[in-house]
Design a protein around this nucleic acid. Structure first.
Lengths: 331, 331
DNA sequence: TTGAAAGCGCTAACAA
DNA sequence: TTGTTAGCGCTTTCAA
């Protein structure tokens, strides 16, 4: 593992000259350059990126933290950030936050201690006051969910409007008793989507019935029994709106086995190939990731420039078959 | 951004004492410690991880490089590596290699220059001689595909055996003309799986017909037309073996629309929920990732220990419905 | 128990 | 065009 000093000694020049050659500084005689390059080759010299990084005071790395890398939605965000980072010659440090909110702070802080060039985070908590001090020095952009108790850039989708439209769509198909499936209301996205659901009911002068709301059904068995309950006499649902990806993946097998009208927030692979194909409100995770990463670089380049803090992307209804399943007992 | 020196000045001690406090060195008087901690708090001191890293000569980071982060198979590998790395207090630097083999070398070398603690790679090329020099200093483990022209740890699955079994399974279901779908034979995994396919045919004394092999059908339209060709009079296939995930995802919609017997290499989300549900040879990407990461740490801890270079994990047939679809014209 | 000195590998700033 | 000096923030000697 030769160092620059060793190359310099070998070539009979100073380390600084080696550094110049390495950085394509024009103020090096071609002969000197050739000589140094020869020495580099002979010694198998490879620059130590850690030293450069340390010297520069900022590491050419953007962090991305998402709840779950295996969820295609978050994978697409990470992928987009990485693409954008690559264009700026930056690498990407990825972390899964998991679904335990307690992990968020330690994980993010350990990333930030590395003097990242920026951080994109899809948070799992609602209080980000602890990032206050960090965000003064490192650009932080939120995706999917906006931060709580912190002023920072956020790129989200129209959760409320999308949920409203997805619910209204079921109402248009003649449903009057519509179940709501969601992970947990502690997540602002889910809370917003429940609001949208209620707005759609209100707009159609339908009552809001808490018995129609089933939370936490994120596993297949959980979703299956939630569905049984929703279809049962107490709730009497003839349709369901699944408000997040985990619930959707969990409930789809049950819907396939015992069809019931369904719309889901978030598109997913093969949604169009299932029987029935699933009508969804499509988000655009790649756009979220691209925008967030781009904003990081923009903030770094122009610290003074004033930019909108909140960007809400539209969502789009993709109508497929699952919304057309009629109620078992016609109204 | 206070430094250790500033904290030391503020507390009236030497930087080394601050360092001791930070590293829980027992040789610090409780009073001194309390005093230093007080100063750290007052100055909002946060250790600069880059400096520590630089000083130590090795960064507490494992690299993971996969062709495509959005593919659940690779996402699961990354996830597993990350989990394992976390247990060793290491972070994870993730890179997508993409499907262009030319990107592999520059991308991997730029990761390695950072003095990683280790690297897990699912390669896209077949020649890894360029990693020779690196692998002497940094543990490198291959997953999914073994390296070419390089001695390194590799964790792969039984590509040939799995393909043989998946093909034999179709033969057992009475098929005599079985199509082979695959990305490109330049990938050793696909080449191996084609071998397995041929072995199954040979074992059943069925002829191998190149007309039954369709490569590169990785998009939906591509897969659909490949399927049309395979079912056509020239090839006359009554069943298909899809040898990799990209082809499987591309061909499944066509199979759903116009059923034909199918087995696929690699399980995927909702494979059991499609109509027909898809019979697969399941790999275990999480195991691959865990094993590879564990090996990295093992090599780092015991550089001399001799360990097997090649680990081949078994694959398991998950029988579902798609293998049971009969030939249109009974033989 | 504490501190002083030195240096990890590289590169700005300045000098020659 | 090339070299010297100095230092990024931390930690490892070694000495006090």
């Amino acid at each position: 593992m030769a160092t620059m000093r060793e190359v310099a000694a070998h070539a009979g020049v100073s380390p600084k000259t080696v550094s110049r050659v390495l950085n394509d500084d024009p103020h090096v005689l071609p002969a000197t350059r050739a000589h140094v390059e020869q020495s580099m080759r002979e010694l198998d010299y490879v620059p130590n990126a850690m030293a450069t990084t340390f010297r520069s005071g900022r590491s050419p790395v953007v962090g991305v933290a998402v709840p779950d890398l295996v969820d295609p939605f978050f994978a697409a965000i990470v992928n987009a950030v990485e693409e954008r980072a690559l264009a700026e010659d930056l690498s990407t440090l990825v972390t899964s936050l998991g679904h335990d909110p307690a992990r968020e702070q330690p994980v993010l802080e350990s990333m930030l201690r590395r003097q990242l060039s920026g951080l994109v985070v899809a948070p799992t908590t609602n209080d980000h006051a602890y990032l206050e001090a960090w965000s003064a020095r490192i650009p932080i952009a939120f995706v999917d969910r906006a931060p709580g108790s912190l002023t920072a850039d956020a790129f989200t989708q129209d959760d409320r409007g999308g949920a409203r439209e997805a619910t209204a769509h079921l109402i248009e198909h003649g449903h009057r008793r519509i179940g709501f499936l969601g992970d947990a209301l502690s997540a602002p996205t889910i809370a917003e989507r429940l609001e949208g659901y209620r707005e759609a009911l209100a707009a159609a002068r339908l009552p809001y019935d808490p018995a129609l709301v089933a939370l936490g059904a994120t596993t297949r068995p959980g979703a299956a029994s939630a569905l049984v309950r929703l279809r049962g006499p107490d709730a009497g649902a003839t349709a369901v709106f699944s408000s997040d990806a985990r619930c959707t993946m969990a409930v789809v097998p049950a819907v396939t086995a015992h069809p019931i009208a369904l719309t889901a927030f978030g598109d997913f692979p093969l949604a169009d190939t299932l029987t029935p194909s699933i009508t969804v409100m499509a988000q655009d995770p790649a756009a979220l990731g691209h925008l967030a990463a781009a904003r990081l670089f923009e903030r770094a380049a122009h610290p003074q420039r004033s930019l909108p803090r909140r960007t809400v992307l539209p969502v789009a209804l993709i109508e497929r078959d699952s919304c057309r399943i009629p109620a078992p007992h016609p109204a």
